Simulated assay, not measured.
Amino acid sequence: MDEQNLTGGNGEVKSVPESPKDKNSSMRLFVLLGLVAVVVGGMAALGAYKVYTKLSRDKFSLAVAKAFNFPAVKVAGEKIPYVAYAEDLKAIHTMRDYDQSQRDAGVPPDRSPGADLTEEQMSDQVLWRLVNNLLVNNAAKKYSVTVEDDDIKNLKAQMLQQFKDEATASEELMKRYGWDMKVYEQKVMRPFIVQTKLAKKMKEDPKMKEDLRAQAEKALEEIKKGADFAALAKKYNTDSTGERGGDLGWFGKGEMVPEFEQAAFSLKKGEVYPTVVESVYGYHIIKLDDRKTSKVKNEKGQNVNAEQVRASQVLFRFPDILSYLDQAARDGNIHLYLKVHNPFTELNVTATEKTSTSE
Rank of each mutant, 00 (worst) to 15 (best):
D104S: 11
P81D: 06
F163T: 05
G178C: 14
E120V: 11
G106M: 13
V131T: 08
L89G: 03
P206M: 14
E185T: 13
P81A: 12
A139I: 01
Y98W: 09
E204W: 00
Y143T: 01
V136L: 05
L160V: 08
G114V: 00
T118L: 06
S101M: 15
K141L: 12
Q161H: 11
D205W: 06
V194P: 01
L160W: 05
S170H: 02
K175T: 00
K209D: 10
Y177S: 07
M202T: 04
M122S: 08
N137S: 15
A91T: 03
D124Q: 09
D124A: 13
K209Y: 03
K207C: 02
L127K: 03
P113L: 06
T168L: 07
N133G: 02
K175R: 04
I92S: 10
K201I: 01
R111G: 04
E120L: 09
M159D: 08
M189E: 11
G77A: 05
Q102W: 12
K153M: 07
V107Q: 09
A214Q: 10
N132F: 02
L173E: 10
N133Y: 09
V83M: 13
G106T: 07
K182P: 04
N138T: 07
Q125M: 15
K164V: 06
E210C: 07
V107C: 13
N154P: 02
Y85W: 11
V145P: 00
L89T: 01
K200G: 09
S170Y: 01
Q215W: 01
N138A: 13
I92H: 05
I152N: 11
E172S: 14
L212H: 03
K164D: 11
R103T: 02
N154L: 14
L155Q: 13
